[in-house]
Amino acid sequence: FNRPQYMQERLQALKEPASAEAVRSAFNASRDEILQNAFTRGLPEGARYVLDAAYRADLARGWQNGALTSADAFAHYYAHFTRDQNAFEARLPSLKTPVSVVWGEQDIYINKEMGVEFARRTGAPLRLLPATGHYPHLQRPHETIEKVRAAFR
Rank of each mutant, 00 (worst) to 15 (best):
R24C: 00
A73E: 12
Y55N: 06
R48S: 05
F1V: 11
A131F: 04
Q8C: 04
S70F: 00
R149H: 01
Q12V: 13
G62M: 10
Q36K: 07
R3T: 14
A119L: 02
W103C: 04
F74A: 12
I110R: 09
V148P: 03
K147C: 07
D72W: 15
Q85P: 00
L126A: 10
R127E: 14
L126T: 15
T97V: 12
R140H: 08
A150V: 03
S94Y: 14
A90C: 01
Y109C: 04
D107G: 00
E9N: 03
R140G: 07
F88D: 14
Q64T: 13
A131Q: 13
A57M: 13
A26Y: 06
A18P: 07
A150P: 02
Y77V: 04
L35M: 11
H137Y: 08
Y78C: 04
E45L: 15
N86K: 08
T69E: 06
D72T: 14
A67D: 14
G104D: 13
R121A: 05
D72K: 02
Y78T: 08
Q8W: 00
T69Q: 03
A38I: 10
K112Q: 15
R3K: 10
E143V: 09
A57H: 10
L35V: 03
Q64H: 02
F74Q: 14
L126F: 06
A18V: 07
T97W: 00
Q85V: 03
G133M: 09
V50R: 10
F39H: 14
A75R: 04
E105G: 02
W63P: 04
N37Q: 12
M114N: 08
G46Q: 13
L95R: 14
I145L: 05
K112A: 14
G104E: 12
Y78P: 01
H80G: 09
A53C: 01
R56Y: 01
K147Y: 05
R61C: 03
R121N: 11
P17G: 10
G62I: 08
D72H: 12
P130K: 10
A151Q: 15
A119W: 01
V23M: 02
F74S: 12
L14S: 06
P44M: 08
E143P: 06
E45Y: 02
Q36S: 04
F152M: 10
Y77C: 02
A13G: 04
D72P: 01
Q85G: 01
G42T: 09
A20F: 03
D32I: 03
